[in-house]
């Protein structure tokens, strides 16, 4: 049972990293629907690098770097070129989906390194995730930089008039978001499930994206949501631990996705939005043109 919980927490870490990056990026007003793509690319790069160099740190670094680079690319399209954020995000996702399948294919199979050390069965990434949540919360709500980030996401015109460099802040947030997405992918391929397979995420990134909407853009609520989904996800992978013999294992796999839809509906209702949803950054998804 502890093993299941430890594994669930590791699964939540993957949701958490990606969603936290997306949260920071969205707080600055940039939506990246291609989150899954960044995770795929980060995970694949980490896996290939770790396997060829036999070094976890190098693999992790490669994952972070590629995630950051793709975040930067998204930023260039959305901030500098003021392109449609959905077009760019979808582009990144399909790009990553296609290219990682091609590039990673020769590496299909297990990583072949000693497993990342665990403490009482718990991966070191989980405490890192909790620390990052605390850091992100402190940064966003207790520092002037956080105030600047939130202002850029709410009303970039007001921020600019106060002397805040809107574009710089957006670039920083999108790139950090990308780095965290890369970290998330690397956590998957290096620690959680060190076996490369094409399209290994199968929707993790989109669930993470949904988690950001559930979180009301608050890192602590995000942590709770990610933990919940991590447990649910792990249970859906091994339902026999709870309900042996009931329904096919394939049916259980649909559960995390199926639950996401009604939650999305509830948080989208006017009832919910007028009570809790005020946290949504007002300029989210809108390109900002300096006058």
């Amino acid at each position: 049972m502890w093993e299941l919980l430890a594994r669930s927490l590791e699964a939540s870490t993957i949701f958490l990293f990606a969603a936290l990056g997306e949260l920071i990026s969205q707080r600055a007003g940039v939506l990246n629907v291609g989150l899954e793509g960044l995770m795929l690319f980060g995970g694949t790069a980490a896996f290939i690098t770790a396997q060829t160099t036999s070094s976890y740190p190098l693999g992790l670094l490669a994952g972070l770097a590629i995630g950051g680079f793709l975040g930067l690319a998204h930023g260039f399209f959305c901030i500098t070129l003021r392109g449609d954020q959905v077009v760019s995000g979808m582009g990144l996702w399909i790009l990553s989906f296609g290219l990682t399948t091609y590039l990673g294919n020769p590496y299909t199979g297990p990583l072949g390194l000693e497993r990342v050390p665990r403490f009482f069965g718990l991966s070191p990434f989980y405490p890192l995730g909790v620390m990052l949540v605390a850091t992100a919360w402190f940064l966003l709500f207790r520092t002037s930089h956080g105030l600047a980030i939130r202002s850029v996401g709410e009303n970039p015109g007001a921020a600019e008039a106060s002397g805040i460099p809107v574009a710089v802040i957006r670039y920083l947030c999108v790139t950090s978001g990308g780095i965290l997405a890369g970290l998330s992918g690397a956590t998957y391929t290096l620690s959680y499930n060190p076996v490369w397979n094409y399209n290994f995420l199968m929707g993790w990134g989109f669930v993470s994206l949904a988690l950001v909407f559930f979180s009301m853009w608050n890192p602590w609520i995000l942590l709770a949501g990610a933990s919940l989904f991590g447990i649910m996800w792990q249970l859906s992978l091994s339902p026999e631990l709870v309900l042996p013999g009931v329904l096919s294992r394939y049916v259980w796999r649909t559960v995390p996705f199926a639950i996401t839809i009604p939650i999305l509906c509830v948080i989208s209702t006017p009832w919910f939005r007028t009570r809790w949803g005020l946290a949504k950054p007002e300029a989210l998804g809108r390109p900002y043109a300096k006058e």
């Binding site: 582009g91 790009l95 989906f97 296609g98 290219l99 399948t101 091609y102 590039l103 094409y198």
Partner: peptide, 13 residues
């Protein structure tokens, strides 16, 4: 390598 058609998909994007 396997998956040329996937790579193409990404490049086209």
């Amino acid at each position: 390598p396997f998956g040329v058609d996937y790579a193409l998909l990404g490049l086209l994007m």
